[in-house]
């Protein structure tokens, strides 16, 4: 199936998506790579509030290029999701994170958390960073600015082409 979706998501919608569905995603998403994930999980451990509200949201695993003049962002394709496997289940279980966007397969612990709490994993097109940048209409750093390209950005998407690679029932295209 083909869908046009907008964030934030509710659990029912997420559970209705199936591996292989094509999605064009619009709305707000947050970026995060391993360094940012490590800090988010440390904040959870310390019982502190996260700098971003992930309830119903999507995290895009990306470290973008700096914006050239006149553009909101530089190239911005997905990074390898496996590096976030150690952290994702915590965000899914404790923050109601509903979607992740990246490239490559996920570990079993991530898939079980996705099934239990209702979360999908979208594949963005790895190595097509310029094309993806054209689907990002606004970008601002909202946390961990000192991490440079690994900071958390708030992105505004318009029709970013994605594929449901692993759904909330545990079906996977990998």
């Amino acid at each position: 199936m083909k869908y046009k979706l907008t964030t934030p998501f509710d659990e029912k919608l997420i559970r209705s998506l199936h591996a292989g569905d094509k999605v064009e995603l619009s709305g707000t998403v947050y970026t995060g790579r391993d360094a940012a994930h490590k800090r988010l999980v440390a904040l959870l451990d310390a019982g502190e509030k996260l700098p971003v509200d992930l309830d119903g949201q999507a995290i895009y695993f990306v470290g973008p290029c700096p914006p050239p003049p006149g553009r909101p962002i530089g190239s911005a394709g997905p990074t390898t999701s496996g590096r976030m496997d150690a952290y994702s289940p915590r965000l899914i279980a404790e923050c109601a994170l509903r979607a992740m966007i990246g490239k490559g397969d996920r570990a079993e612990n991530v898939k079980s958390a996705m099934k239990e709490y209702g979360c999908v994993y979208f594949a963005a097109t790895g190595g097509a960073g310029a094309l993806i940048a054209n689907s990002i209409v606004a970008a601002e750093v909202v946390a961990f600015e000192d991490l440079g390209p690994e900071a958390i950005y708030k992105l505004e998407l318009r029709d970013l082409p994605l594929v449901v690679a692993i759904d909330a029932e545990g079906n996977s295209l990998y």
Binding site: V62, C65, G74, G77, G127, L131, P161
Partner: peptide, 28 residues
């Protein structure tokens, strides 16, 4: 079917990167 879609995206990405002087991939 999905793969054909991806190939089209790779080719469009290359054209766009060249014309707009954007990196092909954010991981430079």
């Amino acid at each position: 079917e999905l793969a054909l879609d991806f190939f089209d995206q790779y080719i469009r990405n290359a054209e766009l990167a060249k014309n707009e002087q954007l990196p092909l991939c954010q991981d430079t």
